[in-house]
Design a protein around this nucleic acid. Structure first.
Lengths: 144, 144
DNA sequence: TACGACCTATACGTTGCACACAGCTCAAGT
DNA sequence: ACTTGAGCTGTGTGCAACGTATAGGTCGTA
């Protein structure tokens, strides 16, 4: 099985398979004829496992550690429990931030409905955005 | 004013100033003595504006367009309205996804409380993760 | 054997920083 | 005047997880 074959059976795109190979999540042999990556049927389970783990919010680097345990014949479940607990907390915080962002956006849209467009002045590049800045919060790290 | 000066007055780190310069959000001249980036006081407003816009979920590429309008003496507000409306919808979708993810995670943690760790078998690399896979959903694109 | 659809490989672009490293500047101390 | 040394500067590289651009290889059919 080559790249496309595995990709189809696992439900991902070809470049995903190549990327996972590149970072060591998959370790195919090479077809001696043409040098193509040669995958086994267990790689199908492996890729599906990776996607399921990502569904739960695991990062690929997490998954790498988990798979390393499994490959070594050890139960990765303890590792899994640790990671998922940490990730759950991170996500909770992230969700709060995003919810706050969305609130800011939606109230901004509301406010702007009734405001006219205006040319930029010296200290205000766009009063629409400055208007929201009044609504509080310092300018810390923001992520989308 | 050099990099650190602007960074302090605008409330960001030095490398942020350098990055914004690199992508063209800031266009300092160069100190003829030593080649350092030379900023003006209006750059302080500019950086603060950028941070406020980011607070509202604008991407730096959005901001670039907005600032280009403002630099050309045109009101960027129409552009702003368009972008923010689009972004609001995107964020709404993203929030739904993240909420769903968090639900999956938390119920997974609950389920796992009562499950024992287990060695990986042929078709199951980690039954803790496989257990959640049963709970539905295909393996589409997932983002953290 | 020639064609062309499809596959492959590598390499680079994306976003918004964060950091490593080496060199430069400037004030204080001797 | 000279030497520290802290702190600043510049460039360059790395990160996550792909997506894409490009050039070339392979295989079935005619």
């Amino acid at each position: 099985m080559h790249v496309k074959g595995l990709a189809n059976k696992a439900g991902v795109r070809s470049y995903v398979v190549r990327y996972y190979t590149q970072i060591g999540l998959l370790t195919p042999s090479r077809d001696s004829d043409n040098g193509y990556r040669q995958f086994s049927t267990t790689d199908i389970y492996r890729v599906r496992f990776i996607r399921r783990a990502k569904l739960l919010g695991f990062k690929l680097s997490d998954i790498q550690r988990i798979l390393a345990d499994a490959d070594a014949g050890q139960s990765p479940c303890r590792e899994v429990r640790q990671i998922i607990t940490r990730r759950a907390n991170e996500n909770r915080k992230r969700l709060q931030e995003l919810n706050a962002l969305q609130s800011r956006i939606e109230s901004a849209v509301d406010v702007w409905e009734s405001m006219p467009d205006q040319l930029p002045s010296h200290e205000s590049l766009c009063h629409l955005i400055d208007a929201v800045a009044e609504m509080g919060g310092d300018i810390g790290k923001v992520e989308l």
